[in-house]
């Protein structure tokens, strides 16, 4: 890669990739929570609409959707997205659908006993969700969200096909300009890896914080650390979660 392309295209491309990742992740996160919570709603119509959204976006290709947004949408509606936002929308809506499955699953893993305790204290449905169920589901969500975030980062390479000048686009440009693919693509692979690694580190920190928020993990209180390590083997937690349900009808 020539230094001209590196400075003029690749480095700005890295910044574009980061921007697309951050914006799409924000949108995906929003969609994941809204759709995921809607999919646990008590009204069937809400579950139906959100479930339909999930099925549609899971079943279509993010790339095709992006192409549609960039090239078909303007013809159909006479209005054009800035290419980067067409990409962000396509990625955010698609990965948001995947994320909704994580949110739904984690909410359902909160034991029925917790819901009952909330009812017994007269919390409203909304209060139970916000104060009891979501905070407990959150630590469950973080590791799969991390996976999804890495997938999303790598998925941002798709925006290069709708001529958003991200780092993949810059590598392609370098290939065309210099006829040398190897160095450009090695650099590209390495760059994705570095960004993914940084994201994983960040998400690990988020995970630790989330666990500390429900009294798990080694955070803070040093004198309980040994005690916790003994009491909180994974099996122990599972057992607690299982026996936590409601106790039959003696």
């Amino acid at each position: 890669m020539s230094s001209g392309i590196f400075y003029e295209w690749f480095l700005p491309g890295v910044w574009i990739t980061i921007q697309v990742t951050v914006y799409s992740a924000a949108l995906a996160g929003l969609v994941a929570f809204v759709v995921g919570i809607a999919r646990t709603h008590r009204l069937w119509i809400v579950r139906f609409v959100s479930g339909t959204y999930f099925e549609i976006f899971r079943g279509t290709s993010a790339l095709v959707f992006m192409l549609w947004m960039a090239f078909a949408f303007p013809l159909m509606f006479g209005w054009q997205f800035v290419p980067m936002y067409a990409g962000v929308l396509a990625l955010g809506l698609t990965y948001g659908a995947y994320g909704s499955e994580i949110v739904r699953g984690s909410l359902q893993s909160v034991s029925a006993a917790q819901r009952e305790a909330g009812i017994a204290l007269s919390f409203t449905r909304g209060q139970r969700l916000r104060r009891i169920e979501l905070p407990q589901a959150w630590p469950e969500m973080v590791p799969p969200f991390n996976n999804l975030l890495i997938e999303l980062l790598k998925g941002t390479a798709l925006v290069s096909v709708i001529s958003v000048a991200d780092m993949t686009f810059a590598a392609g440009l370098s290939r065309l300009a210099t006829n040398e693919s190897a160095p450009a693509y090695v650099l590209l692979l390495f760059s994705y890896f570095v960004i993914a690694f940084v994201l994983t580190r960040i998400m690990r920190a988020v995970e630790r914080k989330a666990k500390a928020g429900i009294g798990q993990g080694g955070g803070g209180k040093g004198r309980f650390r040994g005690l916790l390590a003994l009491k909180l083997s994974p099996e122990g937690e599972m057992r607690q979660a299982k026996t936590g349900t409601a106790g039959g009808q003696g």
């Binding site: 009891i132 928020g213 026996t243 936590g244």
Partner: peptide, 10 residues
């Protein structure tokens, strides 16, 4: 008051 306490762990 429940058999399994059901305190909010969070």
């Amino acid at each position: 008051v429940f058999q399994q306490f059901n305190l909010f762990p969070n």
